[in-house]
């Protein structure tokens, strides 16, 4: 597929994030009535947007709708509400000379797609001409090191690893050290999946972060939390506890190539004021897209 084709494919996936067929709902001559609101509510809930945000949007939209007569006019109101859910993207520090290497720690619950997303990012940075190193700090899960090694290979980037069962904080430390010594631009730290409710494992994550900043003050520059689009309301609890433990700075939403809409990411982004930076749309190395709320919401309705 050529680049344009890929971009379009990505966009159509982006379009799928929250809703499908919303345009149908807002067809020109449809009346604004109870049944329209009911359908709207169903779409929002089924997109995993969460009951709080759904109620909030429904209330706002219904208030504003009193001055309007057709569903088509309502569309703009609805669009604005959706856009407002996503915080504006922050400036990335990637080109800050003081932050070299730019250290990114990838975190999240089990099986969301951390390692895969990290592998895709490695290739993305590499293809931008950056020098990239991966620290294999998931020393717990069976064959996690072997998995991330294959990704390092695919992206032809360096890797720092210890043996299985080693202290992940030590791996992260060594990764940053090697990154500094070898003049890397980006260091990506793969961490083991862990449920946010497991105190000892969250403490371990804190320790990894501490050891990174011990070696390089200011690092990690980014803590990327990976959410699975299939996840429902639990993502809110995940985000809250990961944020409390290590301060999440940005989000990635994976598995949008399925039928799940991943709407909960809007609630997460809103509550943490962290931008959704990337979306995963497949298992391949090229299946990563940057997320842009403006483009996304507009695409939803064009």
């Amino acid at each position: 597929m050529d680049l344009i084709g890929k971009f379009k494919k990505g966009l159509s996936k982006t379009r799928d994030i929250l809703l499908t067929d919303v345009n149908e709902l807002f067809s020109m001559d449809r009346k604004i009535d109870e049944s329209l609101f009911e359908e709207l509510e169903e779409i929002l809930v089924m997109s995993d947007l969460g009951i709080d945000i759904t109620m909030e949007i429904m209330e706002k939209v219904s208030k504003k709708s009193r001055k309007l007569s057709t569903a088509d006019e309502l569309k703009e109101v609805f669009k604005d509400e959706l856009k407002a859910l996503f915080p504006v993207k922050e400036e990335t520090l990637l080109n800050d000379p003081k932050a070299k290497p730019h250290v990114i720690m990838v975190v999240g619950v089990n099986g969301t797609g951390k390692t895969t997303t990290l592998g895709k990012l490695a290739l993305k940075y590499k293809s931008e001409g950056k020098k990239v190193l991966i620290a294999a700090a998931d020393t717990f899960r069976a064959a996690a090191i072997e998995q991330v090694e294959i990704w390092a290979d695919r992206a032809s980037v360096s890797i720092v690893k210890h043996r299985a069962g080693a202290d992940p904080a030590a791996v992260a430390f060594d990764g940053v050290e090697a990154g500094m010594a070898r003049g890397m631009d980006v260091v990506l730290i793969d961490t083991a999946g862990r449920l946010h409710t497991q105190k000892n494992l969250m403490d371990e994550l804190r320790k990894i972060k501490r050891s990174v900043s011990k070696r390089m003050p200011g690092a990690p520059h980014e803590v990327l939390m990976v959410l699975d689009a299939t996840t429902g309301q639990n993502a809110l609890s995940q985000a809250k506890l990961f944020n409390e433990a290590v301060g999440v700075t940005s989000l990635a939403l994976t598995k949008l190539d399925g039928t799940a809409k991943g709407g909960i990411v809007a609630a997460v982004a809103k509550s943490m004021k962290a931008p959704l930076k990337y979306i995963g749309i497949g298992e391949g190395v090229e299946d990563l897209q940057e997320f842009d709320a403006e483009i996304f919401v507009d695409a939803l309705f064009d």
């Binding site: 997109s47 699975d228 299939t230 429902g232 309301q233 399925g258 039928t259 799940a260 809409k261 909960i264």
Partner: peptide, 12 residues
């Protein structure tokens, strides 16, 4: 199936 699955669980 993952216990954290949201609305899509039925489709899956």
């Amino acid at each position: 199936a993952d216990a954290m699955t949201g609305q899509d669980a039925v489709n899956i």
